[in-house]
């Protein structure tokens, strides 16, 4: 399995040499496998967003290396624009960065900056907006007259249209209604499955992580606290609670069910799987 991104001995320290010295990230070693979805979870202030801004070279680590398919992204600082087109980053509440007259021209801002030809830009805009659930009619409208959820889709499409090899999303579904969450995260997963993009999703929602992620990276106080497959991480409930994190609600339900001897397994993380488990339990009784 190749790694799309690899972090080696990464530390980010603010105010080095002053009394305000603060290590935002401390000796991080981790990797993000190509073509998979890695979820990053962690309590507020654990360094998730700082980590995200390192991945496309927006900020420079105080120590350590960020390797994109084996290459150090800081090797040629002048070609950082190239790196940024290969590692797309969608910030928290990206809807506040929209600026252009129409949705279409806003989505094409990134591809245009990459210097792509017009017909290629058009193709990419169409593709990105389809996966983000934007209709042809919406492309012609002003981004400022859309609803919050629609704006979010436009902003994500704006980064998706750059067709990055790695796509990092900081809380892509925060503040959306359940249907909107499902559509956005589902659309991204579908896109990933077709194009083999590596996805990194930062989220506070254990349900979203359980539903979509393949691997989980747990951050605590600027360090990698746990790392592994979804099953492996959610098995260790106690350790998660220590990091002020939680389990998906459905898993907590199954732990309670097991205590009452109503079912056998507690490794149930998604509602779909829970349904099957319950059906099994009912038929066996």
């Amino acid at each position: 399995m190749t790694n799309a991104l690899e972090l080696k001995n990464i530390s980010v320290i603010y105010g080095e040499g002053t009394p305000f010295r603060k290590a935002a990230l401390n000796n991080i070693n981790t990797s993000f496998p190509k073509g998979e979805i890695t979820g990053i979870i962690g309590h507020t202030g654990s360094g998730k967003s700082t980590l995200a801004s390192l991945l496309n070279g927006l900020s420079k680590p105080t120590e350590g290396e960020v390797l994109l398919f084996g290459e150090n992204i800081w090797a040629k600082p002048k070609e950082m624009v190239k790196i940024r087109s290969r590692v797309g980053l969608v910030f928290q509440y990206p809807e506040y960065q929209l600026f252009d007259e129409t949705v279409e021209s806003d989505i094409s801002f990134g591809p245009k900056n990459m210097g792509l030809p017009d017909d290629e830009i058009k193709k990419r805009v169409k593709l990105a907006s389809e996966f983000c659930g934007l209709s042809e009619k919406e492309l012609k409208r002003s981004p400022f007259e859309l609803s919050g959820g629609q704006k979010r889709r436009v902003a994500i499409a704006g980064v998706l249209a750059m067709q990055p090899e790695v796509l990092v999303l900081d809380e892509p579904a925060a503040g959306l209604d359940p249907k909107g969450r499902e559509e956005i995260l589902g659309g991204l997963t579908e896109y990933k499955n077709i194009y083999g993009t590596t996805l990194i999703i930062i989220s506070h929602s254990m349900e979203d992580i359980a539903n979509y992620a393949d691997n989980i990276l747990v951050m605590k106080d600027g360090e990698v606290y746990m790392q592994g497959g979804v099953h492996e991480i959610f098995m260790q409930a106690e350790k998660l609670f220590d990091a002020k994190l939680d389990l998906p609600q459905i898993t907590k339900l199954f732990i309670e069910l097991k205590k009452r001897n109503l079912c056998e397994n507690t490794d149930v993380y998604t509602v779909g799987y829970a349904k099957k488990e319950i059906e099994k339990a009912i038929t066996s009784k």
Partner: peptide, 26 residues
Amino acid sequence: IISAQKARCADFESGNLLKRLKALIP
């Protein structure tokens, strides 16, 4: 906002004056 537009490959540091002014619109 600067970070977000940078992540979309926006370039604020090169080009002539007119180009740089235009880069401020986003």
